[in-house]
Structure formats: C-alpha cells, structure tokens
Design a protein around this nucleic acid. Structure first.
Length: 633
DNA sequence: CATTATGAGCCG
DNA sequence: TCGGCTCAT
C-alpha cells in the first residue's frame, strides 16, 4: 500500500487522464479504415485465436471483453477486427504503444507537474495553473466556456442530459462557490483544453477525472468513458464512497480487498468508516491501517511525482503449456532474443534521455517434473548491467545458470521453463552540468591535461570560455578510447527530470526549445569546430552519429552569452537536442580513467556507477496527522 | 502449464 | 541491496 500521507494543507487540483482502449486507438490510427469498426488487439493468435489485450468500444457493445480469446470474441462478435500486436524477435513488441504514450505525455505535461503512471495513464497536478486561472481569468469572466468543458460530468449535479450543459456552465461559473470548487472548475477547463489538444495532435481520445487528490481523480476518470471527463467536488465524496464497492478502489482489487470483505464484512469503502484507526492498524499494520482509515474519508495526500519516463525497462515471454522450455539451448535462444530487445531499449533511453541503467535482473518461471517439493519458485537474480547485446546475453545466461543451480535438486533435475524475462533498472541520469567536466574545461585546471595534450583533436584554436579563460584542448576522445559499435551518448545533459525526450519522431515537439549543451559537448562547441566535424573525420563513428546544426547554434548562443547555468529549471518543457556524441560505455578503458584528472574521473565513473545518494527521510513523523478532519471550506 | 507483457512499490 | 511478493492494466 502507499504510505499514508496527510492531506495537504491547501486544496490541490489533480487530474487523472486515461487513454481510451489505447492499443486499439494506436492501431486505428495506423489503419484508419478500422475506425468505427468493432476492433480488438490480440497477441499470439495461434492458440484459440490469441489473447485480447485491448477492446474497442464498438466491440464492447457485443460483450467482447479483455482477456477473452480471439475465438470467443468471434463468437459474440463475428465481424470483430482482430489486430495482431507487432511481433519482433518472436515476441510481442510494444514499442509503438510506448511511443504513442510518449506523444501524449509530451502534450499533457505542459500545464503542470506530470506523472506517467503507465503506458496510457498520467496524473497531473494542475493546482498552480488553476490558481492562476482563478486569479487572472476566472470562469465567470470567460466569454464562452469551451464546449468540451461544458460536457464535463460534475458529480452531485443533477445530470439530466438535456439541460446538463447549462447546469455545468452555471456550476463552472458560480460566483458564490467554495474556493475549492472554483479551483476544480478551472481544472476542468484546463483538462478539457488538454484533451482537445491531445486529440488534435495525436488523434487519440482520452477520459479524465478532476478532483482534489489522486485517488478520487483516478476513480472519476473511469466513470464516464470514452472521451469524457468527470469532476469530483468535495461535497459529493461521502456519498460516492458510501456506495463504492471496496474492490473498485485502487489497491483494493486484490487480496487486501478480499480480506476487508471476508474478515471485516466491509462491502463498500464507506463501510470502513465504522472502524477505528487502531482496529485497522491492528489488523493490517500501521501504514495500511492508516491508509484505509484515510481513504474511507476520501483523504489521500499522495503527491503527483514529476516523472515522464519509466523507472525500468523489462521484456519477457511466457511459454505456456507444452511450449515450456526444456533445454539449455532453447533457454539461451530466448534469452538472446530478450536481451537484444532490452539492449535496444536501454540504448534508446541513453541516446534520447541521457540515462544509464545499472542493474540487470533475470526472472523466470519454472516447474519440475515428478517432484513433490517443486513448489519452489525459480529465484530471480541480478547483476551489474553492461551495455552491449553480447555482454547482456552473456550476463543473462550466467544469471539463469545461477538461478537454475539454486532451483534444481541434485538428482531430479528435469525442469521446464514457463516464462523468462530480463529487466534493466536503477536508471540514473548521466551526471553532468554543474560538475567537474564543464568546470574543468572552463579553465580551472588546464595543465593536468596538457601532458597528454598532443593527441586527439588537432585544432589550434582555443576559444575564450565564458569566464574569459582559455579553454584547454584535450585528448578526451583518445582518453575515452572511443570505438564504434554500440554507442553511449554523452552530449546534452539534463539534471532536471522534466527535460527528457518523449519520442524520437518530433511529433508535436517542434515548438519546444532546444536545451543547453551538455558539459562535454559544450566544450567542443566552445571550440570552433562541431562535434560533427570531429566525428566525420574520425571514421570511427557509425551511421547513427549525427548533429543537429540548428541545435548547435542555439547552444552556442548560450555559451557566448555566458549562460553557464546548467542546472536551471526551465519553465517550459524542453526537449533534448539531437546533438549526439556517441561512445561506448563499455569501451571506456578503466585504466585510462585513472589517468584523468581527479574531478573528471569522478564524473566519468558517475556514468558507470550509481552515485551514492543520501537517503531522504520519508517517514511520517506523527500518526496523529492522519486524523486531521477532511478539509472543508 | 493458457490473462501476456510490463510496470511500480513495499517488505524483510 | 537484493529477492520475494502484491497490485495494476
């Protein structure tokens, strides 16, 4: 369960945006002739027509449900269009859906803090935007409230269909309302605008909930689908929860929810109100008990985390029934496929977002023939992640062998593997910016490099750094022993998590400005040659290396202006430039790092190893703060 | 051993 | 920190 948090002191405006049958929409955008037809996305159609993973609304009318088999869907809806998920390397390939999700995030993240909750859901904290609207152009002053906003569903408002828009208009504009309700009204208008923008720029529809916390926003987004939005004023929360079945609440759909029903006789969330916090804590522990007590009252202080990118990448495949893998060779084959995909994905993350994954984990599902004690699970194993397909494959095999040794018993070692997956986690930004490399190159300590200074770049200009000092030339290229093959990037930097690439296609990204140069690239650009020239001359770069000259110009302007603040938080979302300086992490010779100046060593090692981070205190100080009454106006 | 593939997060 | 487990879609 989430750690219970006290409700924030001031009212927030939180939105949950949920794409409607997202995979279906992505496929329908690819093939517009599918629009309007009953459609579902299916994977692996060999066995009983495959499994449905997304169902369009036209098909739902026929009773088609997610996770039906394709054959069943055909029975209830003979005309259904079953679209297969893209397949690569013998497995489902979800890249097109991830990319489409990124398009949406890049639009939704413009108006406030944005948390990518899943491939097709985001949370937004629109408090500031709503407060601003309220103080500058409050709804009652708006000439015409957008049509889409008028289509909002406002819980507690009599929704009589015909005159609903007029009711909503009155609610959105009511002058004597609570400050909190007015904020929600502004939130609803903002969200309606965002949803329209998403539709215009991506062709995707979505639904949304607008409330004072994440829990209620999530509940509301599901209430009116597809392509609608729902507002949850504080005044309706009690009634809403009183009739809400516990299993419908996020986090209560599993064993905990079942326990509430069977052990406490709780049927609705409102039923929880009868139990003291002590009682709930006694049975479910301090944290979960407090959390339950809070949600019964509609209280949830969970923050919208600022995160546009996933924290891990994983890929896996199941081998059900007779397909279970029974030989080391077949296991290795599939590990190779999975590692290929994972390598591609973390390399893409590195290129686009300047993030390095540090941990590789292998998971497997397994069984043993004729062994009673074979209840054991195949243990998951992890190790330091090394970039490069072959290295990852090698490491994954070692992890599997290690797990298998733990799994099998000495004698009876007939096993079967029913699932395999590899994942990359502990993904950290490449540290740069403030730090050593840029300050080093900007003239502090030139001499420590001069000993090896003759190698590498052969240019005789050294331009003034912003501070007016001479920038040293450096054989960084040689020192890092760049080689082609799988490249690591170290150009633009970004310490702000907001400044990440969302997709590589540039869709709807063109208005965003280029970001500032990363430390190393900035150095190169400070000199009067471009990274492109360097690489073109080196003959060491593969075809993926390229430089966006416009971005370079843009960056140089910053440089010439003496804009040296790499840690500045941009008000506007910025996208990384395409300027790329590719090199292979694995091809950095550790012995060479030792020869670098100490402060550079620290930075380069930072790329390779997670920096120690101070553990943030995250304990709730006082239980008592959970018992604050729900904030009312 | 037929709800897959992928995520996030808590706990010991 | 790692590995196990839960929950979600």
């Amino acid at each position: 369960m989430p750690i219970p948090r006290p409700a924030p002191q001031a009212a927030r405006v939180i939105a949950h945006v949920d794409m409607d049958c997202f995979y279906v929409q992505v496929e329908q955008r690819k093939k517009p002739e599918l629009r309007g037809l009953p459609t579902a996305v299916v994977q692996y159609n060999a066995w009983k027509g495959g499994g449905l993973i997304a169902v369009g609304y036209e098909a739902r009318k026929f009773g088609v449900k997610r996770s039906m088999r394709g054959d069943e869907a055909k029975e209830v809806c003979p005309d259904i269009q079953l679209i297969q998920v893209p397949v690569a390397r013998g497995k489902a390939d979800l890249k097109s859906y991830r990319d489409a999700g990124s398009e949406v995030v890049s639009i939704l993240s413009a108006k406030g803090r944005c948390e990518r909750a899943s491939i097709d859901e985001v949370y937004l904290d629109l408090t500031d935007a709503a407060e601003s609207m309220l103080s500058e152009t409050p709804p009652e002053m708006l000439e015409s409230i957008e049509k889409e906003a008028l289509k909002s569903h406002v819980l507690g408002l009599t929704d009589d269909g015909k005159e609903n828009e007029e009711n909503v208009r009155r609610w959105l504009c009511q002058d004597d309302a609570d400050h909190e309700d007015k904020l929600l009204a502004c939130g609803a208008i903002i969200v309606s605008q965002l949803r329209i923008q998403v539709l215009e720029e991506t062709q995707f529809t979505c639904s949304a909930g607008i409330a004072h916390n994440k829990m209620l926003a999530k509940l509301a987004s599901a209430m009116h689908k597809p392509a609608q939005q729902t507002v949850v004023p504080t005044s309706c929360v009690k009634d809403l929860l009183a009739s809400l079945p516990v299993k419908k609440m996020k986090q209560l759909g599993g064993k905990l929810g079942s326990s509430l029903q069977s052990d406490l006789g709780v049927q609705t969330v409102g039923d929880l109100l009868q139990f003291s916090v002590e009682k709930l804590q006694e049975r479910y522990g301090t944290n979960t008990g407090s959390w339950l007590w809070n949600i019964a009252r509609g209280i949830s202080g969970e923050e919208v985390e600022s995160r546009l990118l996933p924290k891990s990448h994983g890929c896996g495949k199941t081998f059900p029934g007779p397909q279970a893998l029974k030989s080391i060779a077949s296991v290795e084959h599939w590990l190779n496929q999975l590692c290929e995909e994972l390598s591609e994905r973390i390399q893409y993350d590195l290129d686009q977002n300047k993030r390095i994954a540090h941990t590789l984990t292998l998971h497997a599902g397994a069984f043993m023939y004729n062994e009673k004690e074979s209840q054991r699970k195949f243990p998951s194993k992890s190790c330091q992640l090394r970039y490069g397909i072959a290295k990852m494959q090698e490491d994954a095999k070692k992890l599997f062998d290690s797990g298998l040794r733990d799994f099998v018993c000495p004698h009876n070692n007939r096993w079967g593997i029913t699932s395999l997956s590899v994942s990359a986690s502990k993904i950290l930004d490449i540290p740069s910016g403030t730090c050593s490399i840029s300050s080093f190159f900007q003239g502090k300590d030139c001499h420590s490099l001069s000993s090896s200074g003759s190698i590498g770049f052969n240019h005789d200009q050294s331009l003034p750094s912003p501070s007016g000092n001479k920038i040293c030339t450096t054989p960084m290229y040689d020192m890092l022993q760049l080689r082609p093959s799988c490249e690591k990037i170290c150009d633009g930097h970004d310490t702000s998590k907001q400044n990440k690439t969302l997709d590589g296609r540039g869709t709807s990204l063109k208005k965003r400005k280029g970001k500032e140069p990363g430390s190393i690239l900035r150095y190169f650009q400070g000199c009067d040659f471009s990274a492109k020239q360097v690489f073109d001359g080196s003959s060491q770069m593969n075809s993926e290396s390229y430089v966006d000259l416009d971005a370079t110009k843009h960056q140089r302007r910053h440089l010439l202006c003496g804009d040296n603040d790499n840690d500045r938080i941009h008000e506007e979302q910025t996208m990384p430039t395409r300027t790329a300086w590719h090199l292979n992490v694995e091809d950095i010779d550790p012995s060479v790092i030792d020869e670098l100046p100490l402060e550079i060593q620290r930075e380069v090692r930072g790329w390779l190893h997670p920096p120690k981070r101070v553990q943030a205190a995250k304990h709730c100080s006082q239980i008592t703060q959970y018992f604050l009454p729900a904030k009312k106006s």
